[in-house]
Design a protein around this nucleic acid. Structure first.
Length: 557
RNA sequence: GCCCCUGUAGCUCAGUGGAUAGAGCAGCGGUUUCCUAAACCGCGUGUCGCGUGUUCGAUUCACGCCAGGGGUACCA
């Protein structure tokens, strides 16, 4: 049970008993809010309930706080309950309970930090989903990092999670891409074929065509353009996706499923769902195209689902079928899409679509991460190959490393228009919070290594010897982790993790400085054992945090 | 025009309707017989963009304004 839940029930029963004894008057509806005070003098937790009740009770808040404080039932967790002006009830955790938590954390081990808030619920999280037309651009890294950490955190909170990449391999863009690929392939074969209009830009296509020509040769061309594309397309798709997959792997991003847009058409799913909407009178024809009647669902404009020109579905068109697939066929309780801010116009459409499917809109959450500006030493960077500024995620990882990259992206909330300072991120020193956190982990590992080398068995220890302020500070910080995970998962805010990691690291460095763990002085062996248990607990907490962030937990640096 | 996001310390950013708004970096000064100094300790009044409102209480919620970014396709 979470600490705050216990406190809530303690306050609740205190209020009931004061009311039944008549020392406090009855009240209407209210909510018990447990928060963490900023000042240590105000204890570990507090509630401002008396302030909220003052009006209906027609009493001064402090009187209510006093009455509640006295009535709080005995609990091993609570060391002290104090009323405080103007109307708070402050709780301080008991030293003995805090000490005992070291054992609880050690017992939980690498699973420490987990909750079961989401157990029994399935959630699908879709992220990155960039068109398979080239390597990932630096801007895509943010969504990748947010999505993958969010998935980790949701899993830690008990959800059954599926990570999915939606491969847009069917749209008009892909047609242009393949047309251009054909021309590039012809050029690679030495023909003077012009690029189509419109054509797909980028050097990548040229390189891809050259590679394909090297491996597949002239014979492909003998069949004419359409047949050649039929052969080239799957192979180019396979190679581009492999490249995307590899670079994501380097970013520590993995998927449970790669879902192809084209499969929606091949399987008939697209037609099936379109018919569904037609039967519901939500699809009509105009100017030779088919439209989704979004205005009937409160939107300002209708949306094209099938183009007039070649009769193919639009991006929104297939997304209709895709989301039907997510909610109706695969029956996810919740669906989370992590999109770049440039997709913002699409959000209202998807919500409208859910209305058409009669799916509760709250089951779909769309996280829009804002764009990233890259800078180096205070100077803003414009991306281009010509200026020799990095462009791809691959180059970004090479430049700053996976861990620094993840930590930096993760430490800002998705909606912030963040600035990524490359020079700071790649600094491998104390200036960089990334290494500060990892160094903390390495240091803990080092202490445990030393204990092992010296043959110290600390499996049995007297935890009541942990009384130093820095020891208590560290324990308090360690046991915050489940709350941090819970909050990150429930509010879909993974950026709390790096901030917690920093706090925890600071607490353990301060502890390290003040409390020698392994000492040559023999009489202190019992203290050593207790502190080694604390060190191990801290290592579990920090290691778990790093794992959830998708970062490495180094044993030494 | 309309829609979304942002505006908090010199810089980059946290901040759950509560008590005296925080961290990292940068800057200045100090700390090392023994587990990693990639560390620790000390030094911070900032119109929380501006205004009005809701509230016992607003950086937090609502509305208006200002500034910056993004979107506003038979692209995705």
């Amino acid at each position: 049970m979470k600490i705050t839940d216990t406190l809530t029930s303690l306050v609740s029963s205190a209020l009931e008993s004061t009311q039944s004894s008549g020392s406090l008057p009855p009240t209407g509806d209210f909510e018990i809010n447990i928060e963490r005070p900023k000042l240590t003098e105000h204890g570990d937790f507090s509630t401002s309930l008396p302030l909220a009740l003052a009006r209906t009770m027609r009493m001064s808040p402090i009187q209510i706080a006093e009455a509640i404080s006295i009535a709080i039932p005995e609990n091993e967790m609570i060391g002290m309950v104090e009323p405080a002006a103007p109307g708070f009830v402050n709780f301080t955790l008991s030293t003995s309970w805090l000490q005992s938590q070291v054992g609880v954390v050690r017992k939980a081990g690498t699973s420490f930090g987990s909750n079961d808030t989401g157990s029994g619920q399935s959630v699908q999280i879709e992220f990155v989903s960039v068109n398979p037309t080239g390597p990932l651009h630096v801007g895509h890294a943010r969504g990748a990092v947010i999505g993958s950490s969010l998935a980790n955190v949701l899993e830690a909170n008990g959800y059954e999670v599926q990570r999915e990449y939606y491969v847009n391999d069917a749209g008009n863009q892909m047609r242009v891409f393949y047309d251009t690929l054909y021309s590039r392939y012809m050029q690679a074969a030495g023909n003077d074929t012009p690029l189509p209009d419109p054509s797909y830009p980028g050097e990548y296509l040229k390189d891809l065509a050259n590679d394909l020509f090297h491996d597949m040769g002239e014979s492909v061309l003998a069949k004419g353009k359409e047949d050649a594309i039929v052969e080239l397309a799957p192979e180019s798709l396979r190679r581009t996706l492999a490249e995307i997959r590899n670079v994501l792997l380097k970013l520590n991003v993995t998927y449970d499923n790669w879902f192809h847009e084209s499969s929606l058409i091949a399987s008939g799913k697209f037609d099936e769902v379109l018919e569904l909407l037609e039967n519901a009178n939500l699809v009509f024809e105009r100017d030779g195209a088919k439209w989704f009647a979004a205005t009937k669902l409160g939107l300002e404009e209708d949306i094209v689902v099938i183009r007039s020109e070649e009769g193919g579905p639009t991006y929104f068109g297939t997304d209709i079928a895709y989301h039907h697939e997510k909610f109706i066929s695969r029956k996810f309780d919740r669906v989370i899409n992590v999109w770049g801010a440039d997709h913002h116009g699409h959000v209202a459409r998807m919500k409208a679509l859910l209305k058409a499917f009669e799916v509760d809109q709250n089951r779909l959450t769309i996280i829009l991460n804002q764009i990233v500006n890259f800078s180096s030493g205070g100077e803003s960077l414009k991306f281009s190959k010509r200026n020799n500024v990095l462009v791809t995620v691959e180059e970004l990882i090479k430049e700053v490393g996976t861990d620094a990259c993840r930590f930096t992206f993760l430490s800002r909330s998705p909606e912030s228009h963040m600035e990524f300072d490359l020079s700071l991120a790649k600094t491998q020193s104390s200036e960089n919070p990334v290494y500060y956190v990892q160094y903390g982990h390495a240091r803990l590992a080092s202490i445990l290594r030393t204990a092992n080398e010296r043959g110290i068995d600390f499996n049995e220890a007297d935890l009541t010897l942990l009384t130093h302020p820095r020891e208590m500070e560290l324990i308090r910080k360690i046991i915050e982790l489940p709350d941090v995970v819970d909050r990150a998962a429930e509010k879909l805010e993974p950026h709390h993790l790096p901030h917690y990691a920093m706090d925890l690291s600071r607490s353990l460095q301060r502890f390290y400085e003040a409390c020698r763990v392994i000492s040559s002085a023999v009489p202190e062996i019992e203290t050593t054992k207790a502190r080694l248990q604390l060190v191990e607990a801290a290592k579990y907490a920090l290691g778990r945090t790093l794992t959830l962030m998708g970062m490495d937990s180094p044993e030494q640096m």
